[in-house]
Structures are given as structure tokens and as C-alpha cells.
Nucleic acid binder design. Structure first.
Length: 204
DNA sequence: ACCGGGATGTTCT
DNA sequence: GAACATCCCGGTG
């Protein structure tokens, strides 16, 4: 068993379309709560009409344009929070949205904050759900994931990313829906979105 | 399992 | 006003 170690700054200093699949199977910690990342989406700044940073910096997306390795949190549909890790060189507005986790630690706290949730597998299944389960809000926007200044960290516990992650277009986006910038652990029941193929099945 | 509608508020045209 | 990187509930099959 390997002790979990926070990802170094250099991990984030890359194109999110390259780094995002490597985020799979890393562990997102928030205080005593934690979950394994099993679904992510990359957002590619000025090249990407679906990105919040596509039209340049605003008060909302300022964190995206800051240093890599910080947490960008925004409000979605007026009532949910969604959490991203900032990637690439400062000033480019690149990020990876964390869309789903397998709950690992602090399940009692997660259940308490997700009273509408019936099954544990749905605790962190979706970007709005996982922030609720980990108690991440807009107050956490700008947190440093490398130093853990607000007890939010992404760490490597020795579990490698999948050799062949599932790939698809991003969920819930209108523009650039055809870009294959969503990656997930194939067959994992905690992945969000419609059930595609059953675990282990092959395209036919 | 899959669909449709409502909740709710910030951002931008 | 419209669009939105969503979720939950209650229908139907």
C-alpha cells in the first residue's frame, strides 16, 4: 500500500487534453472525505467554444486564467457547484472538470450532505453531486491543489490510470459537442451519464 | 431503463 | 430574455 501524495505543480503545467486521462484513478481529498476520480472532461480555452474561458477573462472565470493546480469552482444552473482543476500555462484559461468519483472515505458525511441520494454509488456520480458530497462550494474557488491550502488536494495513491479509458464527447455542452474530450473508467458504475455498454463488453 | 418538467440564479446578448 | 459544463422526482414500459 502506497501513501497518497499530492500531485506536483508540473502535473498541471500541461495541455488538459493530454493530462485529463491521467487524472483518472487519482484521489480527490477534501478534509476527511475522499473519492477516486473516474470521469473527467477537458476544456481548451480560446480554441474551445464550450469553455467558460472562450471569450476571455471575466470575474467568474478569473481562476481559470491564474496559475495551474488551482481549483476553479462555478455555479451551474443556479443551484449546483462544479469543480475544475486549472491546467497549462497561466493566462490560457485551460481546465479539467471532475465529473464523477468513487466514494472512498467520509461516506457518513457525504450521505449527510446528500440526503436526496439513495444509493452510495450515486453519492459522487455527476459534477454537481460530487461537490455536494465533498462540501465544495464557491468559497473554495481558487484553492491550491498542490499545497492543499484549503484541505483540497488531488493525490496519487499508486493506482495507475486505465490503459484504455473510455472516450466520448462532453456531456451537457452545446458547442463543440463532437470533440472527444471526456474520459472515464470504462465499466465503473459511478460514472455519470447514460449507461453505454455493460462492463467488459465490446463495441458491436 | 428512459423520458419530461421544474427548481433556481448568474452571465451574456 | 435566453442560455446554461445539473439534479431530482414522478411518469411510463
Amino acid at each position: 500500500m502506497t501513501a497518497a501524495r499530492a500531485l506536483p505543480r508540473r502535473f498541471y503545467l500541461r495541455d488538459p487534453r493530454v493530462a485529463a486521462p491521467e487524472l483518472l484513478n487519482k484521489v480527490l481529498f477534501r478534509g476527511s472525505r475522499a473519492g477516486r476520480i473516474v470521469e473527467v472532461e477537458a476544456y481548451a480555452g480560446s480554441e474551445d467554444p464550450a469553455s467558460h474561458s472562450f471569450r476571455g477573462q471575466t470575474p467568474r472565470n478569473a481562476t481559470m486564467f491564474g496559475p495551474p493546480g488551482r481549483l476553479y469552482v462555478y455555479r451551474s444552473y443556479g443551484m449546483h457547484w462544479c469543480a475544475n482543476a486549472v491546467f497549462g500555462e497561466e493566462g490560457f484559461g485551460l481546465a479539467v472538470l471532475v465529473r464523477a468519483l468513487v466514494p472512498l472515505h467520509g461516506l457518513e458525511l457525504m450521505r449527510a450532505d446528500r440526503t436526496a441520494c439513495r444509493r452510495d454509488r450515486d453519492l459522487c456520480r455527476g459534477p454537481g453531486r460530487l461537490t455536494q458530497a465533498l462540501a465544495i462550494t464557491g468559497a473554495d474557488d481558487g484553492a491550491d491543489l498542490v499545497t492543499g491550502d484549503r484541505s483540497i488536494v488531488i493525490a496519487d495513491d499508486g493506482t495507475p490510470p486505465p490503459n484504455e479509458p473510455g472516450v466520448s464527447g462532453r456531456i451537457g455542452v452545446g458547442a463543440a459537442a463532437d470533440q472527444p474530450w471526456r474520459w472515464y473508467v470504462a465499466g465503473q458504475v459511478c460514472v455519470s451519464g447514460p449507461r453505454l455498454t455493460p462492463p467488459g463488453s465490446v463495441l458491436r
